[in-house]
Amino acid sequence: MAAALLAGAGTAWFTRPAASANPADGFASQASTTVTTLPPDDPALPTPPVGSSGAPNRSTASSSGRPAKAGVPLLGRSLPPVSEPSKLPAPTSFSIARLGITMKVRAEGVAGDGQMALAPPPADIGWYRYGPRPGDPAGATVLAGHLDEPDYGIGPLVQLTNLRQGDVITVASGKKAYRYSVKSVTSIKKTALDLSSLFTREGPPQLHVVTCGGNFDQETRHYDANVVVIANPIG
């Protein structure tokens, strides 16, 4: 089963050219996904520097100043419509019926060390609140929870490695239950994890469920791998 799951994971990222049997390789960092040449960091100069190159960002007029839009200028080519931040409700509950798992979902941001923030209880799962929500048209909804914690013991996510392709994960958001079908379960060394793919806000909508795995270093009190479940929306 492990081999099948690993092979599945190889095709999981949209940038991967081919399936890979090497779990570390399946999510290996692709430095170029985040590298873009950008305008120089040049404060206070009202003259545009030469030779800068672009990023895929979009611009909107908004907020408290509320300048009314003048509409589209007569010259030039319009940009695609701006995708507004999601107005869908935040997820509240996570469950996997076949494994008897039900967890409360907490909205989480970024910890002081730059990693995703996670509340200690392994019984709860965190949702990366800056990323997509269940039901959003693009990108990965990321849920992550502790495998284990001192004072708390082992959490339900220890069972993630027992997931099989096609198992159903249900995430409740507001009054709706979003169902996902497991596509792959992979253990990836943290040093090789492609974080921009894991937290992507582009591409088809997916659910990414993350916990720890691999070997535990007693000195640093860290696991050396992440277990990543990729699931596709059903329906």
Partner: peptide
Amino acid sequence: APGGVNAGSGGQA
């Protein structure tokens, strides 16, 4: 993206 997901420091599992 955040710098990682540190999801276990107990070692019990």
